[in-house]
Amino acid sequence: MKSATTAPGDVTSFSLGLALPLGLAFAIFFVLPLAQLFYLSLHNDTAATVWGLGQYIKFLTDPFSLAVLGSTLLLGAEVTLACLVLGYPIAWLYQRSGSRVQTLIIMIVLLPLLTSVVVRTFAWIVILGRQGIINSVLQSLGLIGTPLRMIYTQGGLIAALAQVQMPLMVLPLITAIGRIDPNLSDASASLGAGSWRTFVKVMLPLSMPGIIAGCTLTYAAAITAFITQSLVGGGQMLFMPMYLYQQASTLQNWPFAAAISIIFLFAVLAIVALFSTLGRRARGYGDAR
């Protein structure tokens, strides 16, 4: 880095110099292992001695593996949608509340992040289980005869994941909505637009940066949430992180596990890229049409 030799006024080299520690950590603990993973995945045998694309071919031609990938990506989409639908009104409410209510909302939204993932996950098992809180309440009210199956279902898993990932959705949304000039909704109203029209034509497009950021974070977090997926999802549903873990840990098939990681990584990157392209198109800024 040239920061030591450049004049103090040079802002760019200053910030590059300051980014050095993080950059180094990033290189050592992220880029290096990733390269190693990639190297590993390019071998056809478990001992990693024969070069080849066999692991990738195996994954991409195996219906079971593809189904696991598909259901993982779908799970992410469902959790993201749930977070967006539930989180947007919360962020909206936050921007329209007094400071005391704002503090309360932030507390409630952040709470899941402040509890241990294991404790939180077992709490969901207690709530959703056969003899869990929801079932016993419904039974004692006489609304159901036999307990509902909620734990180890896709729905239960989505609820549990959505709760944990909610802050990742709500915080960017709060920022984005807060940046919108409050006069814009007044202007829209004075031009004759009702509140729904104002929301769809003005507020929604202008909060798109927050929606994209929130969706990207939530999506990435939901599909990689190993512990919640395994404990609340149970044995019947298999997702990529667990699949990967089984291949690496139980079956000791490291090259295949590495190939799964790389494929998973690119699938996620593709989806993230899709998000931002869609978002940019919907927003319409940046280029004069």
Binding site: D186, A187, S188, S190, V202, L206, R289
Partner: peptide
């Protein structure tokens, strides 16, 4: 009632 705001409040994402 038509209103022109001090900061104009034009919709930034619309032409």
């Amino acid at each position: 009632v038509g209103i022109v705001f001090q900061n104009y409040a034009l919709f930034p994402h619309l032409s």
